[in-house]
Computed example of a mutant assay.
Amino acid sequence: MLSLIKLPQVLTINQVPNVFHEDGIISGYRYPYSSAKDCVLSIFQLTNETLNIWTHFLPTWFFLWKLLVVLIEEDWQDSYCWPLLVFLLSSCLYPLASSCAHTFSTMSERARHICFFFDYGALSFYSLGSAITYSSYIFPEKWVNSVFHKYYIPTAMLNSVLSTGLACYSRLGLPFIDYNYRINTRSVEKRSVKLGKILRILSFAYPYFFDNIPLFYRIFVCVGEDCTVNEATIVHYQHTALALLTGFLFASHLPERLAPGSFDYIGHSHQLFHVFAIIGTYFQLSAVELDMTLRKQWLLTHSQPITFSNTVEIC
């Protein structure tokens, strides 16, 4: 039966428009104006996007299972677990949006942009979900109920909106002025793409570093009493290291930049970026659950009460 299904054609970099090009990837491209059916069929053949799709689609079901476990085993009416539910929901959404974006991004140039707009929005929601859980469970004791704590989630919300807008703008072809009046379309296009990638990196990096200010202070700076050292600390170190590795892979385009064409199908940076991002999210979830359990009594006594309003920040 499978032999009767005609799989979509796989192309080289010279056969697709520039908007579909990836640094260091020479072959394995899908037809840039595929039908939705061809996009779905392509996930069952080896292209340079296949593992990008599966490395996020399969983990979606793991995080969905974790979400259902919490809903079944925990008292979901207990507001103390609501931030965890928000984080788990965001952890389900961002890999699903990513896998869908990679699947359907070759329907057209317009569809490619729209697909990744949704991807960026899901990543921003994940960033906000992280901030909500950090505000509820992660803050060092010294900072609980401080002015920074009070404005932490509203600022994280603003960051999510701004980062989504900046990431989307970074895909739209940024104009450059050639002050020497030399007409070089290819050069201008390359510079535009480069600036777009820089803006996209900034749009992801800034919310991450802001969200992690209380965690970084807690595990790297804070000493003495009220610094909240417990079994979760080592897991925080682990997911922080994985997050930094993930960012490095996204920005560097290694190893394919060193050997163009050698990692077209397996082992290029975006695949590794997906894998380490998911592993990092798993360790992040483990650390959050540890802090949530170990600090429950102290937080319920000393921190502001968790309500629907300050969980999703609808005031």
Rank of each mutant, 00 (worst) to 15 (best):
L2S: 14
I5P: 02
V10S: 04
N18R: 05
N18T: 06
N18Q: 15
H21N: 07
I25Q: 02
R30D: 01
R30N: 07
Y31A: 06
A36S: 06
L41F: 02
S42H: 00
Q45N: 03
L51I: 07
F57K: 02
L58N: 05
V69I: 13
V70F: 10
I72E: 05
E73D: 04
E74N: 05
Y80A: 14
F87K: 05
F87H: 15
L89W: 15
Y94C: 05
C100A: 12
H102Q: 10
E109P: 05
R112D: 08
C115A: 10
G121P: 03
F125C: 15
G129D: 08
I132N: 01
S135H: 10
E141R: 10
K142S: 14
W143Y: 14
H149M: 09
A156L: 03
L158Q: 08
L162I: 15
S163Y: 03
A167N: 03
A167F: 01
S170F: 00
I177W: 13
Y179H: 12
N180Y: 10
T185H: 09
R186C: 15
K194M: 04
K197E: 04
I198P: 00
L199P: 00
F204Q: 04
P214S: 14
Y217C: 06
R218I: 14
V223C: 05
E225F: 09
C227K: 14
V229W: 08
E231Y: 05
A232E: 13
H236G: 12
Y237W: 05
Q238S: 08
A241F: 15
T246W: 03
T246M: 07
L249M: 13
L249P: 02
R257V: 08
F263C: 01
I266S: 07
I266L: 13
L272V: 09
Y282K: 10
L285C: 09
E289H: 08
T301M: 11
S303E: 11
C315T: 06
